Amino acid sequence: MRRYGPAVLLALVGAAILRVSLFSELYLRYVQAGLRPYLVVSGAALVLLGAAVAAVANRADHEQDHEHGHGDGGHAGHGHGPGGPRVAWFLTLPALALLLFPPPALGSYSAEREAARSAARGVGAFPALPPGDPVDLTLGEFGSRAVYDSRRSLDGRTVRLTGFVTRGGDGTWYVTRLLVSCCAADATAARAEVRGAQAPPADTWVTVTGSWHPEGGLGSDAAWPPVVDAASVRRVTQPDNPYEKR
């Protein structure tokens, strides 16, 4: 069995990658949608490589049995060939975890650990918002317009924001979304303080409809995080892609 260890490990890792990328949308918890083809190809390649390694090991077993059948009894046919260090079997644990119990997307714990926020753009004029209220905005766009838009395009508009609930140390609460460029490892938080509504439990996904409440001057620390006066807060299910693109 030890001879087949590398084949089993390769197949497990490949199957885990295919499970989250080809047969479900779970990969969106970890990477951007554009990386799906690369995940599918790499998962399939690992499964095929595992099959090839198993075939080589099986052939080696047959050749060894053939040698023994011709009277080469001086060698015990057990443990010949490199089976890899036994500690490598510990790699089956994360592979099985991803295959059977994929970890959830990052949530409030990750968002609350972020100590600082860097601005994607400075103060300036933003394009006009589309007509009609409420207007659906990402948390990233809402924050950028609230803090940096010299045209104050959010004035008098009703916005609709979707994210998960995080809490502040002073009883405030926020609708939050994590922004990623490539994958969950580079995630940063975008959030808006919600006023006028009771906070649902942390990590609950909600859609907040309300209006922007200006705070501080353009581009100032006092303007961040932006504030929304909630007219309604509705619980929703987590979207397939829990992240916003940065």
Rank of each mutant, 00 (worst) to 15 (best):
A128K: 12
E114R: 04
V233T: 12
W205N: 05
Y243L: 07
A45F: 11
G216D: 02
A189G: 02
T158H: 10
A44N: 07
L9M: 09
P127D: 11
V40C: 10
P127S: 09
A44E: 07
F101Y: 14
R195W: 04
A199M: 03
S42N: 07
G156S: 09
D149F: 01
S144C: 04
E112D: 10
Y243D: 07
D65I: 09
V228Q: 01
E67H: 13
Q32I: 13
P201L: 05
A11V: 15
A76E: 13
D186S: 08
A97F: 15
P214V: 05
R113V: 04
R19W: 04
T166E: 02
V123A: 14
R145K: 06
A54H: 11
G14M: 04
D229R: 15
A184N: 08
S118G: 11
S232R: 14
Y38R: 09
G216E: 02
A54I: 07
V175F: 04
A120I: 04
R2D: 10
L100T: 10
G50R: 08
P200F: 02
A128P: 14
L98S: 05
G219C: 05
L99F: 09
R157L: 07
S181H: 11
D155S: 14
H80Y: 03
G140S: 12
G84N: 06
T138W: 01
H62Q: 15
R145V: 00
I17G: 04
R59Y: 10
G77Y: 10
R157T: 06
R234N: 08
V227K: 06
R177S: 08
L161W: 02
V180W: 09
G79Y: 01
G14T: 08
L129R: 04
D61Q: 13
H62F: 09
S108N: 06
G69C: 06
L98P: 06
S108P: 12
A128M: 07
A15S: 15
A189Q: 02
